[in-house]
């Protein structure tokens, strides 16, 4: 008698559904299966209409973010054995509009990402067109550069859920990644985003974003360090500039 596990998925097809509903599937269980593999089994063998995003299967592309039993995780690195024999509930990432089944609308994040100018801004490109950077200089921004834009932090952040104008943990962490990079000279250009009510000041340090980040980016740190930067900018703006 082979083992099975129940996976309950949120379903939403806008052409037929006024609101989401849940559908439970019985999936054969072996203890090496990830949640993503469970969803793939459902789509391949049980219900081809189930819609979800995935790509690399190894926690680097950032596509397969889901809510599993109410916690934002990457489906490819979350294992069914940690829930078996209980039922596993899979829902789309919180705080984003649902497009279809487990797929969310990320366009708001993409706007936020663009607004923080996530690229090295430099007028002083060196002669040989390569920069030099010490290990210590790299340490200043390295962890923030590991972001894979998976949006788990946005699903974790209640302030983003309550107010989607908030720039949010991921975009602000990337903003800090560039401000902290010794090659970058664009800090002043990014301060407008930092200083706004929906910039760093939308954060109340719940800290759940850093808890769920699969890459150890620690967006809570990036945002809250910039509260000090923003405060310095506020009080010393006429003095220092």
């Amino acid at each position: 008698m082979s083992k099975t596990i129940q996976i309950e998925c949120l379903r939403y097809h806008p052409e037929t559904d006024a609101e989401p509903r849940y559908q439970t599937y019985e999936v054969p269980f072996t203890d090496d299966l990830s949640v993503l593999q469970g969803l793939q089994y459902i789509k391949d063998q049980l219900d081809g209409s189930l819609t979800f995003r995935w790509s690399c299967r190894m926690a680097i592309c950032g596509s397969c973010g889901q809510m599993v039993n109410g916690v934002p995780v990457l489906g490819c690195e979350t294992f069914l054995r940690d829930y078996y024999p209980e039922k596993v509930r899979v829902e789309p990432l919180n705080h984003f509009p649902i497009v279809r089944d487990l797929a969310i609308d990320q366009s708001d994040f993409l706007k936020k990402l663009e607004s923080v100018k996530p690229y090295v801004i430099s007028k002083n490109v060196p002669e040989r067109a390569t920069f030099r950077q010490t290990p210590r200089q790299m340490e200043d921004y390295y962890q923030y550069s590991k972001c894979i834009n998976c949006l788990l932090c946005y699903a974790a952040c209640p302030q983003y859920g309550l107010n989607s104008s908030f720039t949010g943990p991921g975009a602000l962490a990337l903003l800090h990644r560039y401000n902290a990079d010794s090659r970058d000279e664009g800090k002043n250009e990014r301060m407008k985003v930092v200083n706004a009510e929906d910039g760093v000041w939308g954060c109340t340090l719940v800290g759940y974003c850093s808890e769920v980040c699969p890459k150890g980016v620690d967006p809570a740190r990036a945002v809250n360090q910039n509260k000090i930067e923003s405060t310095k900018d506020y009080f010393f703006r006429f003095w220092l500039k």
């Binding site: 939403y12 806008p14 609101e19 989401p20 919180n94 705080h95 509009p97 649902i98 497009v99 609308d105 209640p158 859920g161 309550l162």
Partner: peptide, 11 residues
């Protein structure tokens, strides 16, 4: 594209 936004009450 008709999306569905879930309520935040009781988050």
């Amino acid at each position: 594209m008709r999306t569905y936004t879930r309520p935040m009450a009781g988050w």
